[in-house]
Design a protein around this nucleic acid. Structure first.
Lengths: 200, 200
DNA sequence: CCTACCGATCGGTAGG
DNA sequence: CCTACCGATCGGTAGG
């Protein structure tokens, strides 16, 4: 167990509550109770409830971006069947971030709409830029005939919403390990766009 | 345009607001304002805010079940490649219900957790029974070797969360028709589990 | 469907 | 990090 600062404890407790009940359904006193302080005392550590949401969403957005950056730096997308390997690696990276911190990932996926205008707008742009990476991989795969002829935006939306859907059912102590989910989801996503060459 | 009763107007306005801001993020006065009556006047038509949510969720749960019933009655799942046709038809039916009423579908998908204990429990059971239909089709397809060897629960979760994810991005006046989304999603779902016989 | 009103809770501040 | 407190809003009721 890592030592958490009070601020980290608060963000962690808030992630859990926002995950379970949503941002609007969680009061600052709910968060305070979870870390065993008075409601008003929370403001010694955070500027506002909105501030806590922003910290959670910003952090998680960064994790997805960093994971995808690492994939694109490591996986050569230019070679022959590069797009298949790249898509598979992007899927695994995404599943990894989700399963590593299911509560924050869930808040990122579902509660970013509760952000105030400017921050909400920023996250909308970053989410779209992230999704564009998936669209690009699919489009490149279609162009090089590695993938079947699909509509890249629709396909990227299909795959990404399936990946994000993990937050609705994943349990760290459940039947499936994070690794086995990553394996299965990479296979499913790759087959969804691929011309299978008789692997059955 | 169909004439709506006041009660139907209220449910419709509430669906729209719950879709945009969530159940907890919507006040009864927000709903009242949308139908241009006073907050307290809402209670001449509904018993409670919770009652409105329940009506929306119950109705939508029924639509998914009826659509799947119709598919299973119409598509012969017993013949040779029956599972492929059945999965494809179930996907199309689900996409149809979602795109037909995106706001209610969105509330069903995201806000059923805000239901009170007993109703929430009922919906949890009905959702699981519905998902079990997808698990069964996948499992049958694997057994008859129509589908590749996948884990049926994981695969059903993957497909269904992708389908439900439509509520997050679909716009009735957008680039894609409901029909083209159904086509694309049926293809993606089927390929995700199928041994492609060289259709590329 | 309205006005008038209820107690409870909301996010947050003051001052220590 | 606490006590004491703020105005605003919450879901809902009474009585017409």
């Amino acid at each position: 167990m890592v030592e958490l600062t009070r601020r980290q404890e608060i963000e962690s407790a808030a992630s859990s509550l926002f995950h379970e009940r949503g941002y609007a359904g969680t009061s600052v006193r709910d968060i305070a109770r979870a870390v065993e302080i008075q409601g008003a005392s929370l403001y010694a550590h955070v500027a506002s409830k909105q501030d806590v949401l922003w910290a959670i969403v910003r952090t998680t957005a960064g994790r997805f971006e960093v994971a995808a950056d690492a994939v694109e730096a490591a996986v050569p997308g230019a070679i022959a069947d590069g797009q298949g390997a790249l898509l598979s690696a992007l899927v695994r990276a995404h599943v990894g971030v989700v399963t590593e911190d299911i509560e924050r990932a869930s808040v990122f996926v579902h509660e970013w709409r509760a952000l105030e205008d400017e921050r909400r707008q920023e996250i909308a742009l970053r989410r779209d830029a992230y999704e564009a990476r998936f669209r690009a991989v699919v489009a490149n795969g279609v162009r090089t005939r590695a993938f079947v002829c699909v509509d890249p935006p629709t396909t990227a939306a299909y795959i990404l919403t399936a990946l994000n859907g993990i937050v609705a059912w994943y349990r760290p102590d459940g039947r499936l390990s994070a690794r086995s989910i990553a394996d299965a989801y990479a296979d499913l996503s790759l087959r969804a766009v691929s011309i299978d060459e008789g692997a059955g």
